[in-house]
């Protein structure tokens, strides 16, 4: 038996919006730790890892580990039927082939439930080693989103370089080229407005802007994004989900042919 009650239902709505364009079908794993997902996009260039810890739910019952395969576009359609202030409960029976999403409005005078068929998906879990990154940059998520959007009007790829000067985003296209540098800035009114650069070694890597733009769909989940870079590893863009966990996006760099 699985029963997860999330008071802040809008979080789940936002999580699905953040993932549904990147990943079509995915297995949600439910265990004592929490509600999680790991999935790659269809071209195996990017990977998303989600964790919503059990402590973040008002009620969390998971008698045994369950894997539930779902089409994220369909889940997103169902969650669009929930109001932003609704409480969302996810229910499933052990060994069953359906999942139920129940929505309660704040006044508790409207209760909806939607049952959805589960899918049998091949599980492709990848081991993500703990790594020491050359550079870790925390910046406002809205700023990162703006930069990715602006640069994609000029080019298809971005070179992200971190030096002592700051983090530089560069692109080139038919009409010309563009560089945006964000310097470390900790003299701000609120900590979430800061740009904080931790650099062990300078690093410069090239990425497809299309994927970075897709990651920025998670912007509404967190005011900050943490970008981790190492020359031998995929980029990690992490959006923390307050009191609950995170959504992390991994993107393989472009490599010399």
């Amino acid at each position: 038996m699985l029963e997860l009650r999330l008071v802040q239902g809008s979080l789940l709505k936002k999580v699905l919006e953040a993932m549904k364009d990147l990943v079509t079908d995915a297995n949600f794993d439910c265990s004592a730790t929490g509600f999680s997902l790991q999935a790659m996009d269809s071209s195996h260039v990017a990977l998303v890892a989600l964790l919503l810890r059990s402590e973040g739910f008002e009620h969390y019952r998971c008698d045994r580990n369950i894997t539930m395969g779902m089409n994220l576009n369909n889940v997103s359609k169902l969650l669009k039927c929930a109001g932003n202030d609704d409480i969302i409960t996810i229910k499933a029976d052990d060994g069953g082939d359906t999942v139920t999403f129940m929505f309660e409005n704040p006044k508790q005078d409207k209760i909806s439930d939607f049952e959805m068929k589960l899918m049998d998906l091949d599980s492709e879990h990848l081991g993500i080693p703990d790594a020491e990154y050359h550079a870790i940059v925390r910046m406002p998520s809205l700023e990162f989103s703006r930069i990715c959007k602006d640069l994609s009007s000029i080019g298809d790829t971005v070179v992200i370089s971190v030096t002592k000067e700051g983090i530089k985003f560069s692109t080139r296209g038919d009409i010309g080229n563009a560089n945006i540098v964000c310097r470390q800035n900790t003299t701000v009114d609120k900590p979430e407005e800061a740009t904080v650069i931790q650099m062990n070694e300078a690093v410069s890597l090239t990425f497809a802007l299309r994927y970075l733009n897709s990651f920025t769909k998670a912007t509404s989940l967190s005011e900050t994004v943490t970008i981790s870079l190492s020359s031998e590893l995929p980029l990690v863009a992490e959006y923390k989900i307050a009191d609950m966990g995170y959504i992390k996006f991994y993107l393989a760099p472009k490599i010399e042919d």
Binding site: L47, L126, D257
Partner: peptide
């Protein structure tokens, strides 16, 4: 020239 890397060349299936 550059080509797009793949996640599977960095992380292994478990």
């Amino acid at each position: 020239d550059t080509k797009q890397g793949k996640i599977l060349s960095f992380f292994k299936k478990i």
